[in-house]
Amino acid sequence: MSNDRIWILLGKQLSGDISPAELLELEALLKDDPEAAASRELAGSIWQTPVQEVAATGSSKERIWEAVDQQLHPRRHRAIIRRLVAAAAAAAVLAAAWTGWQLMGPTAPVLQQLSSAPGGKSRIVLPDGSIVWLNANTQLKYEKNSFGKQHREITLTGEAFFDIAKNDGIPFIIHAGKVNIRVLGTAFNVKAYEGDSAVFTTLVRGKIAVSFQEKTVVLQPEEKLTVPVRPLATAFQQKRLQKDSSGQLAEISWLNNKLAFDNNTFGELAAKMSQWYGVSFHFESASLEQLRFSGIIDTESIEEALKMLQMSRPFNYQINGKEVRISN
């Protein structure tokens, strides 16, 4: 009974705040201490015994509510000035702290914000090893210091494909508007642009739970869930998806069908386009290879793409089957 460590660990276990290592330690300690082991059950009962304090009940509770209630109907009551000043001060404190606290840890929160370039897409590896592909005009936010340690929560605006690193201890949670998506380790697509009328979630593999207001839906692979958010509706639409002829889900085709380039030389771009279209490039002069371009090739054909490039730099091209000749 003299071993205080047992009690510390028992407390942590009962409160659900115990780590796997500590749990093992507790089991080992209890094995060596039959007396404490007998008290374990008792400690469990004590923990489950509900207690309620007397102090705050009665007059305090009513007085506070009176002050608060006046604020619910500001036009009906003119509140006491002191109250207003206090409330304003409190509101200022809250306003300042609000943003940081949404992903609060005990240390000062640092909000990490990642954005894809307008019109471009980006691949990001999060601190926990999860990989995220951001589609155009997409933002991802998370709390830098505690992400991956205490939680794995991010806020998404836009569209992204997630390949989540497995971590059974800390579920990965995505907040997309009013829809929350909870993951253990899986790959899926979320489309939640600000202008979208719904949040679209498409699961590729694994399992995810999507919750919105009080409802939760578990998605199976190759299922797509549509949650209408404008106008707000509680009805989910869940449907099984068909793969297209290339064996791909159309929902994640954006991952593949965009070729983004930013101030690349024509030579570098030609290398990318060669892979993209399965062609080979031949430049008539080295100076042509030094021309620089920025842009994206989406679903354009190679001819359309070259015409687009011609609009920013003068050159001629000739396509012969799988060969593309670039000339002055």
């Binding site: 002050a67 608060v68 619910l72 001060a89 609000w98 949404q102 609060m104």
Partner: peptide, 30 residues
Amino acid sequence: EEIVADVFIAVWNKRKSLPQVTNLKWYLYA
């Protein structure tokens, strides 16, 4: 009593930001 009133008044006045609060209980205590 004033402090607790301030907390709830602030919550009410800023209720439009509530969806951003991931843990309301902790938020109230903090």
